[in-house]
Simulated assay, not measured.
Amino acid sequence: MTPAVLTGALVRLRELREEDLDRLVAWWNDPATAVRQVTGPAHPRPAAEVAAMFWTWSQNAGCNLGLSVVTRDEGELVGHVTLYGADPKDRCATLAVLVGAPHQGRGLGTDAVRTLVDHGFTELGLHRIELTVNGDNAPALAAYRRAGFTEEGRRREAVFRHGRWHDHVQMGILDREHRERPERR
């Protein structure tokens, strides 16, 4: 059972609410947000389709978990995080995070990732959490490294954006690596 709210140092992770959708959809369709964080095509999609996607991600059944990210003090919506695709045998989930452009660069995404990763290992019993990030997204790469992720591979020139080829970087963290992190002791 997932607690109603997971609390980090800077953020709280809570259930998706209807009132979150307008901002989440706007950020998903905002080039300043999407081009850095979305690893697939970064083109606008109909609002209803994007809202339905967030609802699907936020069903919170089994080890699949999607939560809105809000600031710890004010409760201001800043993004959304998701763990998905885990199965009982392998206990490996994929992490996805979206932080609205106005809220990037403040450590909120790093704290949200750390909070969700901790929950994934300590409460959901996951063994591994992985992600894919655009190779030209230096702030995200740094944030994931701060959260304990290790670069495991690189799909060279896998994405064509703005007239150039960019890499996809595969990153992961294992339960034992998470337990050994200094801030966990």
Rank of each mutant, 00 (worst) to 15 (best):
A158I: 01
V97M: 10
G105S: 08
G109K: 01
L131K: 02
L83K: 05
V81E: 03
Y144K: 10
R91W: 00
N64E: 14
R91D: 07
G62K: 02
E74K: 07
G109S: 05
D111Y: 03
H127D: 11
R164L: 14
R161D: 10
W165G: 06
T94L: 00
A158Q: 12
R161Y: 09
L126K: 05
G163E: 09
W165L: 15
N137D: 13
C63A: 14
L126V: 07
V81R: 06
A138M: 09
R156Y: 10
L116R: 04
V70Q: 01
E123H: 14
R156I: 08
A158P: 01
T82W: 00
R161W: 04
L124A: 04
R114H: 01
L124C: 06
V99M: 11
P88A: 03
Y144Q: 08
N137F: 10
L83W: 05
R161F: 09
R91C: 14
G75P: 04
G163C: 08
D118M: 07
G75S: 12
D118P: 00
L95I: 09
V81K: 05
H127C: 08
V117H: 06
T122L: 12
L65Y: 01
G79F: 04
F149L: 07
E76F: 01
A158G: 00
N134C: 11
R161V: 11
T82S: 12
F160K: 13
R164E: 15
I129N: 05
R146T: 09
G120Q: 02
G109M: 04
V69I: 13
D136M: 02
